[in-house]
């Protein structure tokens, strides 16, 4: 009885690993393929038999071409810059608004909150035309401003932070008022430190979304110098050097790596952050 039980246990465990290894392979294959190709010379890529590791290591050359033929580093730098600017702006706008919605009583509060909820419904792509026209009028197209400004408001951020601020007991805020803190000091000294994990989660959400976004940069900018990573790799592909698969894959590795490395370093934070923000 016991042995049959443990036999079934063992079989179950093997089946679990078999299936999960298969699905994991499906998830990881493109990454393996990408890295593998990025290390190979052209003739090996077109060879009939496939090897994971190149017989003639061509990695140095491929990555050198990727980095020199296209401004890869400036793509990454632009990504960092644009994502940081967007997130900073969003915090600046969202935090006071979310605090007022969560903890202050004022006429029009419910109306404003309904407006935020309606705003949540609007897919950003639907606003592309008017945003494009507006930026065109102001002459901002093809500048950093064009990449950043349309994202300055995040109804999602307001909604999310309001939920977190609401979970802080009113008594804490009352105590702070009695202790002599003004409302903006309460935000700075009490609310922000107390909701730091939530802010980090929102940050991860925001940065991942904008680092990977292709739709808007494709509309807003043309110049390679200010392209974000997602657009940059596309520009590289349509470039001369991008016609060679080795350097193209090397470029893809460079574009994809920073976020994936950040993820691997702080896995829990990323997974929980993204899960928490979407579940709210």
């Amino acid at each position: 009885m016991i042995s049959r039980f443990s036999d079934r246990r063992f079989a179950g465990r093997v089946a679990r690993h078999a299936i999960l290894l298969l699905t994991a392979a499906f998830a990881l294959l493109p990454f393996v393929w990408m890295v593998s190709l990025s290390l190979k010379p052209p003739q090996e890529i077109f060879q009939a038999d496939f090897r994971l590791w190149p017989t003639a290591f061509h990695g140095g050359e491929n990555y050198r071409i990727a980095l020199t033929a296209a401004p890869m580093f400036s793509f990454l730098l632009n990504g960092v810059l644009v994502c940081a600017a967007i997130f900073a702006l969003q915090l600046l706008v969202c935090i006071p608004c979310a605090y007022a919605l969560a903890k202050l009583r004022f006429r029009g509060r419910d109306t404003l909150f309904s407006a935020v909820l309606v705003g949540l419904l609007l897919p950003p792509q639907a606003l592309a035309i008017p945003h494009f026209v507006m930026l065109n009028v102001f002459g901002f197209l093809d500048t950093y401003a064009a990449l950043i400004l349309p994202w300055a408001i995040s109804t999602f951020g307001i909604f999310l932070l309001r939920q977190f601020f609401r979970s802080i007991p009113d008594e804490i805020i009352h105590a702070a008022r009695l202790d002599g803190l003004g409302e903006f000091e309460i935000i700075w000294r009490i609310m922000i430190p107390m909701t730091a994990p939530a802010l980090a989660a929102f940050g991860i959400f925001s940065v991942v979304a904008h680092w990977n976004d292709l739709f808007w940069p494709l509309i807003a900018v043309r110049r390679a110098e200010i392209s974000t990573p997602a657009l940059g790799i596309l520009l590289f592909r349509d470039d001369e050097a991008g016609q060679f698969l080795g350097p193209l894959m090397a470029g893809a590795v460079i574009i994809v790596a920073p976020l994936l490395l950040a993820f691997l370093i702080a896995q829990r934070r990323f997974i929980d952050g993204l899960a928490v923000t979407t579940m709210k």
Binding site: P169, E171, I172, H174, A175, I190, P193, M194, A196
Partner: peptide
Amino acid sequence: MVFQSYALYPH
């Protein structure tokens, strides 16, 4: 004022 939940700043 002393509150029911003490309202200490947790951070």
